[in-house]
Design a binder for these strands. Sequence first.
DNA 1: CGAGAACTTGATTCAACTCAACACTGGTGG
DNA 2: CCACCAGTGTTGAGTTGAATCAAGTTCTCG
Lengths: 249, 249
Amino acid sequence: MTYQDNVSVIDCDKCPLRGQDCFTSFKPDEVSFMQRFKTGEMVADAGTELFIEGARSAQLFTVLSGMGIRYKTLEDGSRQVISFVMPGDFIGLQAGVMDEMCHSVEASTPMRLCVFNRNRVFELFQNQPDRAFALTHIAAVEEHFLGEALTTVGQRGAVDKIAWSLHRFFCRARVLDLTKDDTCPLPFRQQDLADALGLSLVHTNKTLAKLRARGVASWSHGVLWVMDEPELTKLSGIDPERVQPRPLI
Amino acid sequence: MTYQDNVSVIDCDKCPLRGQDCFTSFKPDEVSFMQRFKTGEMVADAGTELFIEGARSAQLFTVLSGMGIRYKTLEDGSRQVISFVMPGDFIGLQAGVMDEMCHSVEASTPMRLCVFNRNRVFELFQNQPDRAFALTHIAAVEEHFLGEALTTVGQRGAVDKIAWSLHRFFCRARVLDLTKDDTCPLPFRQQDLADALGLSLVHTNKTLAKLRARGVASWSHGVLWVMDEPELTKLSGIDPERVQPRPLI
DNA sequence: CGAGAACTTGATTCAACTCAACACTGGTGG
DNA sequence: CCACCAGTGTTGAGTTGAATCAAGTTCTCG
């Protein structure tokens, strides 16, 4: 399952994410504050449930590496994937400010997570206005993204939905430097994508085949290959995908 | 259109919303801070665009009275209603922390808004940790709601979608004390509801008729009448609708 | 090598969409 | 004052995109 890995904890100082230019830069005292705020690291195997809907959690995480999914489950067993979780994402904010999580988070690959203590979140508001602002910024960005997802799921057809999803993922991967040429890892199941877009597994599969046949994008064996990026961008309906640096917690 | 109404500005001290028990209480110094933070009031006619997608805005608002919709527009002209805006809602957070809004906001009824200055948001983080936390809390609640909306739009059938939407609205209205017996104002068009749920106008109309015929709920002439609340709740798929007090800005 | 999970593909069904007409309302101007 | 119009709501008929059902095929891993 999961285990604490106290030996090889990374210093915030040397955090491999912080340097990337898709994240806003830290002031020196912010780094040292985060170092004190951080209570450890955790490694999770693929399949681990990091959070469970409705549960209170004492811990909050920042993803150092690996990927996962946030999702909600309905009474009838159907599932809505809310978003894909990637390195740099902060998870558990809802548990941090409200009393409980309103969705579950599951690791799709092995993940390494930076661990924070829930009951120290308020310290951050008291002592580190910049960090508190960053937290709010992250929440606003997440809200923005959910609005886009809602729009896609509510208004577009299957081809556009899939295209949007693949395009968005590829762009996120690129700023994280996870792409190689026109490819990037996409370690989810077709079922996950289907549940994210409100499509059936079968239709998702057929639509992916269509995009592959059209020479737009191809996803197999956990690797996404963007064959015709302009076309994918056009189908996705996203303007220039403003890549604005976002804060890291 | 809109105009400043400098004469009858309400003191935060006497804010009619603050007293309601659906909002968390303020400490005295928080009230005085908000009073200084508040730069005025605005009255908007029905139909006014409070925010326009993509624009920067110098102002942020808290809704004092009236209702509206948040929405995104797509290239092809279709529209996704992100949420319904009700008294107590804080709008413009995205403009406040990111540089621009990623959805528009339109008044559906005449609205009275409390106006704040965007460039003073950071003061709040520097001087008022409680208020800053409240802002983050609001963002997290909004994120929670959007996740629920996404789940509904993605996974449920038309009857459930409509039921969820009506139930949610009625619950929100009730905690704001806008209900009278089993009714509450619902000042939107069927098209707005359709665009919120990703349904066509025609199908929305037919589904509303179905709920009316079944004796569950009836919406006409801007008034929602909940005829069978247990049934509506059941259809909506919401557990107990935990009514947790939320902060007001 | 066998078993389960994931992915494919074709055939059929159904929920929701589009089209099209009509009813009701309130506002405007001749 | 009434004719007209634009916005909104209602209803029926026919179409379609996506769901479901049903059978494979390929992968993965113990």
